[in-house]
């Protein structure tokens, strides 16, 4: 019986839709205590699919394409110039990076930056595959996010399975 209930409980977190971030959460993010908050976004299907929608709306595609890279680097290879934790990705999006990544500070709300950052990580298999978006209705140039293989632990320089 506990075994039967366990996946249901895990599923609750996946399904939970929080439309408004709690004020304490907003404060915590502002105060830089953000490292523990990532899980809320990484394991939640709603935040990830919102991130996917916004990645298209805000035209990240224009430079990074569908994760394969173009003007900007590939985002699906799990090799990061500026670090691959969700807090690093949030900082990249919010503050921009010197070689051509624009800053979205004040242009995208914090909540949405976190959602986009979580989605960016799903492209390299760094989120719960139970929560990652599945295949698109239209043609896709790579496997769906929930079929992305989980990358090896950091530091392990194993050869990459996927090229752009």
């Amino acid at each position: 019986m506990p075994l039967a209930i366990a996946p249901l409980v895990a599923g609750c977190e996946r399904e939970d839709r929080q439309y408004r971030a709690d004020p304490p959460l907003l404060d915590a993010r502002g105060a830089g205590r953000q490292y523990t908050l990532g899980e809320r976004y990484l394991n939640n299907a709603y935040h990830l699919s919102q991130g996917k929608r916004l990645y298209a709306s805000f035209n990240c595609r224009g430079c990074h394409f569908d994760g394969g890279g173009g003007i900007g680097p590939a985002l699906m290879e799990n090799r990061w110039i500026y670090g691959g934790t969700i807090a690093d990705i949030v900082a990249t999006i919010r503050e921009g990076r010197p070689n051509g990544m624009p800053s979205f500070r004040g242009k995208i709300t914090d909540e949405q930056i976190w959602e986009i950052a979580a989605y960016v990580l799903s492209m390299s298999g760094n989120v719960s595959s139970a929560a990652a978006p599945n295949r698109d209705d239209h043609m896709q140039g790579r496997p769906a996010e929930n079929r992305q293989p989980t990358p090896p632990p950091p530091g392990d320089e194993a050869p990459k399975l996927l090229s752009p």
């Binding site: 839709r17 408004r20 909540e111």
Partner: peptide, 16 residues
């Protein structure tokens, strides 16, 4: 002031 209170889930985010 509160798009998610008026229309919860709407694609219009709360902007401070």
């Amino acid at each position: 002031a509160d798009p998610q209170g008026v229309k919860p889930g709407s694609q219009m985010p709360f902007v401070q």
